[in-house]
């Protein structure tokens, strides 16, 4: 699934000021590619990610999903079936078990319970989570394990695009590398688009395409790609 931004921009308007967080961004996110968007805090990275996820509509320009404007699509359904989002602080349901968190999107899709559970367990196992952890609450797991549960939840729906907002921001180096490895594998082996927003240069090293956000503008960083090449 192609995800394309066409001169997309986003303005936060309040009673006192207007802030143009994203300005005139045009780019395409293709399947099987690991993208990193780097930039300082407040440069508009998270806003851009939210626009890509359909959580906010651009105030100018448009987001196209396979050529169709995202404004015309059923965005909750789009997130349920094609676009998953992973956050820095995992955003797991604290009162649901690991297994229930992973299976949650499939329950939303009203998939048969047994099939849904099987698929969720497969996803959790593929991310090196142990079966004895499945019935535990998220707060009993380490940060890396919680992030893997969040990734499992993104994987079970078979999403074409995984958007990750600072996925390693709360993790130590070892766990960060593990998560980034997983994301890279998902892009390479399963042909998913991975878009990671980060300010961590190490995270960017895993990406095949690196963008930089500066004052709302998205700029490609050819140097970073050449370095990896």
């Amino acid at each position: 699934m192609d995800l394309k931004l066409e001169q997309a921009g986003y303005c936060y308007r309040s009673k006192y000021q207007t802030v143009e967080a994203v300005k005139d961004v045009t780019c395409t996110f293709s399947p099987g590619t690991f993208y990193a968007i780097m930039g300082k805090s407040g440069s508009g990275k998270t806003t851009l990610l939210s626009i890509l996820a359909g959580l906010m509509l651009p105030t100018s320009g448009q987001v196209l999903v396979d050529g169709i404007s995202i404004a015309e699509l059923d965005r909750p359904r789009l997130r349920l079936e094609h676009i998953s989002v992973i956050y820095q602080d995992f955003n797991l349901f604290p009162l649901l078990t690991v297994e229930e968190n992973a299976v949650y999107p499939l329950r939303l899709r009203r998939q048969r319970e047994a099939d849904a559970l099987e698929r969720a367990r497969e996803a959790l196992l593929s991310l090196d989570l142990r079966p004895e952890q499945f019935r535990r609450l998220p707060n009993t797991l380490s940060g890396g394990e919680q992030q893997r549960v969040a990734i499992a939840r993104a994987l079970v729906t078979g999403s074409d695009v995984i958007l990750a907002d600072e996925p390693t921001g709360s993790l130590d180096e070892e766990n960060s590398q593990l998560i980034l490895d997983i994301l890279r594998r998902l892009a390479r082996e399963q042909g998913r688009s991975i878009v990671v927003v980060t300010h961590d240069p190490v995270a960017a090293e895993y990406a095949s395409v690196v963008f930089r956000m500066r004052d709302g503008h998205l700029l490609e960083d050819p140097g970073a790609q050449e370095g990896r090449a």
Binding site: A53, L55, P76, R77, L78, R79, L80, E81, V85, N91, F93, P94, Y104, P105, L108, R109, R153, T157
Partner: peptide, 14 residues
Amino acid sequence: ERELALQCVLGMPR
């Protein structure tokens, strides 16, 4: 609210 927002992010219609 956080939990409700998460439900929406995961694809539950508002």
